[in-house]
């Protein structure tokens, strides 16, 4: 079980929220939105792999 992945995603979330705040306060709303979206895509890419692994495991275990 990779608990470090939870910390990785939490760290990405914190970094994205800090960047979002900084960019929003300096009047760069578009860049702030793009940064948030980029962070979301990065986390989603990490997550998709894990979801696929889980589904494969369930398929194998329950004989699909």
């Amino acid at each position: 079980m990779e608990i470090d992945l939870i910390f990785k995603i939490a760290a990405i979330g914190i970094i994205v929220s800090v960047l979002n705040q900084v960019l929003s306060r300096s009047g760069r709303e578009e860049q702030a939105t793009m940064t948030t979206l980029a962070g979301l895509v990065v986390v989603l890419m990490m997550l998709t792999q894990k979801i696929a692994e889980l589904f494969e495991l369930v398929k194998e275990l329950f004989q699909f």
């Binding site: 079980m1 990779e2 608990i3 992945l5 939870i6 995603i9 939490a10 979330g13 979301l40 986390v43 989603l44 990490m46 997550l47 894990k50 979801i51 692994e53 889980l54």
Partner: peptide
């Protein structure tokens, strides 16, 4: 939400 999905998966 993505964090909770990941924890659920694990």
């Amino acid at each position: 939400l993505l964090l909770s999905v990941l924890a659920g998966c694990m």
